[in-house]
């Protein structure tokens, strides 16, 4: 008997513990609603801090492992997202550009509808020459599209300039703020006439000269094309607004500083006045 115990001690202890545990489990399973015994309570209380600490450590380790795992895929994901973001940005820019172009064209269309007497044609600016001595642009319409020398170029804001050189598919436009761009102009309200030319002292500004000393012209007055002179430009197109009126150095005439109505820095689409019934 003793020799049997000695030989199978390990197995016997293991089996007993297993039976006790099964018994305990089945007892607990049958009494789920029963309160825990004082012993259980005591053990649980004693173990709780350790369990909490252990759980915290395990949690941290789990988080760390997950982070490491995540980091491995994060770079690839980040790359994907960056590419996606770049594509979306590009798309958004294209949409914004399209929206702006739409707005510009709508404004030009509105101008065309409001001025049925003018035979207008849309043109795009494809090249810009801007420096102190030169203010001109090239448009994508030429003689094949009915453009001629001295065709007036405008936007919904006002007068831009006139065509001075025509090619089959393109044309060069001299802006009104260029040295070669003087035009006959008049004050819209009082019909006082003068010559409008680039101001040699103020880049981007115009000056109206040859005004009589008693001419009725004041700051804020709108200046429009006079429709006279050799250039044969249409009459009544807004060119700019008077900023200041001063006498000439000899005191015999007046001179007006005029701010152009058109913003030449953001010029992209223009209208060509192919013919005008008013003129």
């Amino acid at each position: 008997m003793l020799s049997f115990w000695r030989r199978n001690r390990g197995f016997i202890v293991f089996s007993l513990i297993l039976v006790v545990l099964i018994g305990l489990a089945s007892h607990k399973a049958s009494q789920q609603q029963a309160p825990p015994s004082p012993l259980e309570e005591l053990i649980l209380r004693g173990l709780a801090p350790f369990s909490r600490a252990s759980s915290l450590v395990v949690q941290r380790i789990n988080t760390f492992l997950n982070d490491v795992k995540g980091l491995l895929s994060l770079r690839a994901r980040n790359y994907e997202l960056e590419a996606e973001l770049a594509a979306l940005r590009l798309r958004m820019n294209l949409l914004v550009e399209a929206e702006r172009e739409n707005q510009r064209l709508r404004q030009l269309l509105k101008y065309q509808e409001a001025n049925p007497a003018l035979d207008l044609k849309l043109a795009k600016i494809i090249s810009i020459g801007q420096n102190p001595w030169q203010q001109d642009v090239i448009i994508d319409q030429g003689s094949q599209h009915g453009v001629k020398v001295n065709t007036a170029v405008i936007t919904h804001q006002g007068f831009v300039g006139r065509v001075y050189e025509v090619h089959p598919t393109t044309a060069k436009v001299v802006l009104v703020i260029d040295a070669r761009g003087p035009i006959a102009a008049q004050v819209q309200e009082t019909r006082v006439r003068g010559t409008l030319e680039a101001d040699p002292n103020n880049p981007g500004m115009l000056r109206m000269i040859r005004l009589a000393r008693e001419a009725a012209i004041r700051p804020g007055d709108a200046i429009v094309t006079a429709g006279t002179g050799a250039l044969n430009l249409p009459k009544g197109i807004l060119v700019g607004y008077v900023e200041a009126v001063t006498p000439t150095p000899d005191g015999l005439q007046l001179e007006a500083s005029v701010r152009p109505a058109v913003n030449f820095d953001s010029l992209e689409d223009v209208l060509l006045v192919l013919s005008s019934e008013e003129h």
């Binding site: 001595w133 101001d199 002292n201």
Partner: peptide, 24 residues
């Protein structure tokens, strides 16, 4: 270059750039 362009444009078109332009 600025000087030559000013002289050429001034001579050809009578457009002599003033102080506002020279600031550039």
């Amino acid at each position: 270059y600025w000087l030559l362009m000013t002289v050429m444009v001034g001579g050809l078109y009578g457009f002599w750039i003033g102080t506002g332009y020279w600031l550039g």
